[in-house]
Deep mutational scan, measured.
Amino acid sequence: KELVLVLYDYQEKSPRELTVKKGDILTLLNSTNKDWWKIEVNGRQGFVPAAYLKKL
């Protein structure tokens, strides 16, 4: 499993997105899109802007 660090808080703006908090370490599911990465948070899957995340 690949992990990502959340660099900035992000509030979901659609049902396909997820809310994340700065400092969270989460599972990366897909990073093929350069702008939006798919991650998992508490069993939910969704997208967060790639600029808000850093691969560990």
Rank of each mutant, 00 (worst) to 15 (best):
1 K>M: 14
1 K>A: 13
1 K>R: 11
1 K>G: 15
1 K>N: 13
2 E>L: 12
2 E>F: 10
2 E>P: 12
2 E>K: 08
2 E>C: 12
2 E>A: 11
2 E>H: 13
2 E>I: 12
3 L>I: 08
3 L>W: 14
3 L>G: 03
3 L>F: 14
4 V>Q: 00
4 V>K: 00
4 V>M: 02
4 V>A: 08
5 L>I: 15
5 L>V: 13
5 L>E: 09
5 L>F: 08
5 L>N: 02
6 V>A: 07
6 V>E: 00
6 V>M: 02
7 L>D: 01
7 L>M: 11
7 L>I: 09
8 Y>S: 11
8 Y>G: 07
8 Y>P: 00
8 Y>Q: 14
9 D>V: 01
9 D>G: 05
9 D>K: 02
9 D>P: 06
9 D>L: 02
10 Y>S: 01
10 Y>N: 01
10 Y>P: 01
10 Y>W: 09
11 Q>C: 10
11 Q>K: 13
11 Q>W: 15
11 Q>Y: 14
11 Q>H: 14
12 E>A: 12
12 E>K: 13
12 E>F: 09
12 E>H: 14
12 E>D: 07
13 K>R: 14
13 K>L: 11
14 S>N: 13
14 S>W: 07
14 S>Y: 07
14 S>G: 14
15 P>R: 10
15 P>H: 13
15 P>T: 10
15 P>L: 09
15 P>N: 15
15 P>E: 14
15 P>V: 11
16 R>Q: 14
16 R>D: 14
16 R>P: 09
16 R>I: 13
17 E>M: 06
17 E>A: 07
17 E>C: 06
17 E>L: 05
17 E>Q: 12
18 L>I: 12
18 L>F: 08
18 L>H: 04
18 L>E: 03
18 L>R: 05
18 L>M: 14
19 T>M: 06
19 T>D: 04
19 T>E: 04
19 T>N: 08
19 T>K: 07
19 T>C: 06
19 T>S: 13
19 T>R: 06
20 V>G: 00
20 V>D: 00
20 V>W: 01
20 V>N: 00
20 V>L: 06
21 K>Q: 11
21 K>M: 11
21 K>T: 12
21 K>Y: 14
22 K>G: 07
22 K>M: 10
22 K>P: 03
22 K>H: 07
22 K>W: 04
23 G>Y: 04
23 G>C: 06
23 G>S: 03
23 G>K: 02
23 G>T: 01
23 G>E: 02
23 G>H: 05
24 D>T: 09
24 D>L: 08
24 D>I: 03
24 D>K: 04
24 D>A: 10
24 D>Y: 06
25 I>N: 02
25 I>Y: 05
25 I>R: 05
25 I>S: 02
25 I>F: 06
25 I>K: 05
25 I>E: 03
25 I>C: 05
26 L>E: 08
26 L>Y: 14
26 L>S: 08
26 L>V: 15
27 T>G: 06
27 T>S: 09
28 L>N: 01
28 L>A: 03
28 L>V: 07
29 L>H: 07
29 L>M: 09
30 N>M: 08
30 N>E: 15
30 N>A: 12
30 N>V: 09
31 S>D: 14
31 S>H: 12
31 S>W: 10
31 S>K: 07
31 S>I: 06
31 S>E: 15
32 T>E: 13
32 T>S: 14
32 T>K: 15
33 N>H: 12
33 N>K: 07
33 N>S: 12
33 N>L: 09
33 N>G: 11
33 N>R: 08
34 K>Y: 08
34 K>H: 12
34 K>V: 09
34 K>F: 08
35 D>M: 12
35 D>V: 09
35 D>Y: 12
35 D>T: 09
36 W>T: 03
36 W>C: 07
36 W>F: 11
36 W>P: 01
36 W>I: 04
37 W>Q: 01
37 W>L: 02
37 W>D: 01
37 W>S: 02
37 W>Y: 06
38 K>P: 01
38 K>I: 14
38 K>M: 15
39 I>P: 00
39 I>S: 03
39 I>G: 04
39 I>M: 05
39 I>R: 00
39 I>A: 12
39 I>T: 10
40 E>Y: 06
40 E>Q: 08
40 E>I: 06
41 V>H: 15
41 V>W: 11
41 V>L: 13
41 V>P: 00
42 N>P: 09
42 N>V: 07
42 N>S: 10
42 N>M: 08
42 N>R: 09
43 G>E: 09
43 G>W: 04
43 G>V: 03
43 G>K: 06
43 G>F: 06
44 R>F: 08
44 R>K: 13
44 R>I: 11
44 R>A: 10
45 Q>E: 12
45 Q>I: 14
45 Q>D: 11
45 Q>L: 07
45 Q>M: 12
45 Q>R: 10
46 G>E: 03
46 G>A: 06
46 G>Y: 06
47 F>K: 03
47 F>Q: 03
47 F>C: 11
47 F>T: 03
47 F>Y: 15
47 F>L: 09
47 F>H: 06
48 V>Y: 02
48 V>P: 00
48 V>W: 01
48 V>T: 02
49 P>H: 03
49 P>I: 02
49 P>K: 04
50 A>W: 01
50 A>S: 14
50 A>I: 03
51 A>V: 14
51 A>Y: 11
51 A>C: 13
51 A>D: 12
51 A>S: 13
52 Y>V: 13
52 Y>D: 03
52 Y>P: 01
52 Y>L: 10
52 Y>M: 11
53 L>S: 00
53 L>T: 01
53 L>D: 00
53 L>I: 04
53 L>N: 00
53 L>K: 00
53 L>P: 00
53 L>M: 06
54 K>Y: 10
54 K>E: 13
54 K>Q: 13
54 K>R: 11
55 K>N: 08
55 K>R: 13
55 K>T: 08
55 K>Q: 08
55 K>E: 07
55 K>L: 15
55 K>C: 08
56 L>N: 03
56 L>R: 03
56 L>W: 08
56 L>I: 13
56 L>H: 05
